[in-house]
Design a protein around this nucleic acid. Structure first.
Lengths: 208, 208
DNA sequence: CGCATTATTCAACGAGCAGTGAATATCTGG
DNA sequence: CCAGATATTCACTGCTCGTTGAATAATGCG
């Protein structure tokens, strides 16, 4: 059973095709998102990406350089939203848990963001090497913002970690492995169920 | 910088070595656990496993057959504990959240279990293909037991999913990616913080 | 028009992979 | 002490991978 997304490789003339606008570059990027999303960094191949984009593998290098370069192009977008975290956390801390889940769901329900986000998740979980890079980013850009908002210190740090643990679990079960009960819930149901958990981690009693 | 775990490959005579007990089989299995733990299924290679065990790659096939066979040998153990779930869930439901975290931590704090468990996690998250296999297992063997204990029905199913989301998040952050604040917490701290979350998902009010 | 730039494919390299079959050395049961 | 059985390495096959360099074709600028 062949991958249905693979087009029959058309035989093409060598050299630049006539008729201005070819979207090969965009097709390659789309294909890369799809392959990295489905197979993770290691198992996705330049050749499969090229095949999906109906293009010669060398063209991928022409536009994006190495495989690692291509991957960073794919995950550039999902790394940005961390910058919006302060807005979410500003205002009353009492509603921050719910606002945080809502914000995350809004992002991840957008297909384009989700596909790249899944690629990042797979890479983060794929191997110790790639994990270290991405965990460093998460610690610096995300955890530190939450820790700061909570006033710093060990207690704040631990609370931020707990928040991260539930967020990671939610994203992994809902979007990456698509565990049925979580993946099928409506965003409102998720917010109602998970918001209070985050709220307790942020401001509640953690001793029992 | 070479992998410190790789021994200098000794030059050896061909044929069975003298002196009875060689633990090559165990060394191979250990090496496989280590490589699958560190790199996931796809990126771990028979050759790197053989090198780590200081053994010829063909010997790996001799003992374990294909790479997939070797992997199932590695992950056989961590798949068993699901059978103990009913004991955890029996008795008063009010303490089940805490008992559940405690049970999981007891398992995962054992190095041998943890290494194999991480291998499973990496495989589960590695690609859509491997994910489906393992998600099927988790749904059947784990979620269904919780759902049943909660009396069945959609509400029970959703509660079980929420429990899974927090458990997955805890395990991923603490053991797989080792996010510092979670990875450094003591088991007791984790139980105190996460137990009530699971308890609320099991028996609490989910509407807000 | 002519020339640099850009888009695209082609052909190949070197490396690494999983797996196979045979060769060799030792051990063990009769 | 001899005949499997077992343990181990070796040499190899066929494949796929990332990457490179050159070839070819169209465009766009002066």
């Amino acid at each position: 059973m062949a991958d249905p997304a693979l087009p029959v490789p058309r035989r093409r003339r060598r050299g630049r095709p006539s008729g201005g606008a070819t979207d090969a570059r965009e097709r390659i990027l789309d294909a890369a998102v799809a392959e990295f999303e489905a197979h993770g960094y290691d198992a996705a191949t330049i050749r499969s990406i090229a095949a999906r984009a109906d293009v010669d593998p060398a063209l991928v290098h022409h536009y994006f350089g190495s495989k690692a370069d291509l991957f960073t192009a794919v995950i550039d977008a999902p790394m940005q939203p961390a910058r919006f975290l302060p807005e979410i956390l500003d205002g009353d801390l009492d509603g921050a848990g719910e606002r945080l889940v809502r914000f995350l769901l809004d992002l991840w329900e957008q297909p384009d963001f989700r596909r790249r986000g899944i690629a990042v998740m797979r890479a983060m979980m794929g191997s110790k090497r790639t994990a270290n890079i991405l965990v460093g980013f998460v610690s610096r850009e995300i955890l530190r913002r939450i820790t700061t908002r909570l006033g710093g210190g060990d207690d704040a740090r631990r609370r931020a970690g707990l928040v991260a643990s539930q967020i990671v679990g939610l994203i992994v079960t809902r979007y990456v492995i698509e565990l049925p009960p979580i993946a099928e819930a409506t965003p409102d149901e998720v917010v109602a169920a998970v918001g209070p958990t985050l709220q307790r981690y942020l401001t509640g009693d953690l001793e029992g």
